[in-house]
């Protein structure tokens, strides 16, 4: 797998996580399920990618985590967006719009 592709996917994953967390706080499995739901199953995020991404984004200061109770009364780690994370979502979304617009044009031409 080429490096550029990984980066693109990673960037995409970051944006998707930011997007689903914009609605409210969520735990790992919740985020994974939500992403599958909003992308209608296009993206299946495996925990092997999800957890490194979450921890990295937390270290970047985009997310904040806290321990809470899950639906099944289990201790789970909940993630929520920080202010910095919201700004990041905005800029990522803009960047994505530009890219997709450009690609659309390129394909439509």
């Amino acid at each position: 797998m080429g490096r550029s592709q990984t980066e693109l996917l990673q960037g995409t994953l970051d944006m998707l996580i930011l997007k689903v967390l914009a609605i409210g706080e969520m735990h790992g499995l919740g985020i994974s399920r939500r992403i599958a739901q909003v992308t209608r199953g296009t993206f299946e995020v495996k925990p092997g990618s999800l957890f490194p991404a979450l921890h990295r984004m937390e270290e970047e200061g985009w997310l904040r985590s806290s321990w809470g109770e899950s639906e099944s009364n289990r201790r789970a780690r909940y993630y929520q967006l920080t202010r910095k994370g919201r700004r990041q979502l905005q800029s990522e979304a803009k960047r994505w719009e530009r890219i997709s617009l450009a690609i659309e044009r390129a394909l439509g031409a």
């Binding site: 735990h27 790992g28 289990r74 201790r75």
Partner: peptide, 13 residues
Amino acid sequence: ELDEEVCGYAEML
């Protein structure tokens, strides 16, 4: 904490 988080994920799954 990492262990609890990942194991929790497995159990929820």
